[in-house]
């Protein structure tokens, strides 16, 4: 596989959480505003790149039967680092993301990439895969966050966009809005792919 292909596949072909229907929990939970979505996306990207790197380095040493447990320990260690860094330098954001930061451990995207890609590919290629999937995830989360924040609160990055007469749809920042927004975006993506005749439609 070429670097170009690996670097690009996370941006459309395997875009999480739409094409790879993994990592839905953070995609739904922390996207009430773009700031939270972006923060979660970047934290997950960091973990993805380095977990792919470590797992790819150790892929010939880790025995096959206990690989999942080993992957989880490696990922958890990285998540602990992220947790501590965020508490030290981005305290308000870490308070807002709350339990969803430690929950990056059980984000299926990270374990999924470790199992499907990093455990059978060389180090640099695996890091490229982590970067690509991570950027895709960050972009998706920012998009969903923007839509929900603009409609649900009338602001973007906390800046009011509409005049004082705007009545925000509070529905969008509550739980049902998250599910509906993600579902409709996925539907639009499928419609576009269908029009272009791509064979990667999610069913």
């Amino acid at each position: 596989m070429s670097y170009k292909k690996v670097l690009l596949h996370g941006l459309w072909q395997d875009l999480p959480p739409f094409r790879l229907v993994l990592g839905l929990c953070p995609a739904l939970a922390v996207t009430a505003s773009i700031e939270n979505g972006l923060g979660m996306g970047l934290a997950a990207t960091f973990v993805l790149i380095f977990s792919n790197m470590l797992i790819s380095m150790l892929r010939n040493i880790i025995p096959d039967q206990v690989r999942i447990a080993c992957f989880i320990v490696l990922i958890a260690t990285l998540v602990v680092i992220v947790e501590m860094v965020m508490k030290a330098y981005f305290f308000p954001l870490s308070q807002q993301l709350g339990i969803y930061i430690p929950l990056i451990v059980v984000n299926c995207i990270i374990l999924g990439r470790a199992e499907a890609f990093a455990s059978r590919n060389p180090v640099l290629l695996s890091m490229a895969d982590g970067l690509s999937i991570g950027i895709g995830f960050t972009l998706s989360l920012s998009l969903v966050g923007s839509i929900r924040e603009i409609l649900g609160a009338g602001t973007w990055f906390g800046i009011p966009l509409f005049g004082s007469n705007f009545e925000p749809f509070e529905f969008m920042i509550k739980a049902p809005g998250a599910f509906l927004c993600l579902g409709i975006l996925l539907g639009l993506m499928n419609a576009y792919s269908r029009k272009r005749g791509e064979s990667i439609i999610q069913t």
Partner: peptide, 12 residues
């Protein structure tokens, strides 16, 4: 609708 089949309609 065809585009909404599968996961999309499940999320809605």
């Amino acid at each position: 609708p065809k585009a909404m089949q599968g996961t999309a309609i499940a999320l809605v």
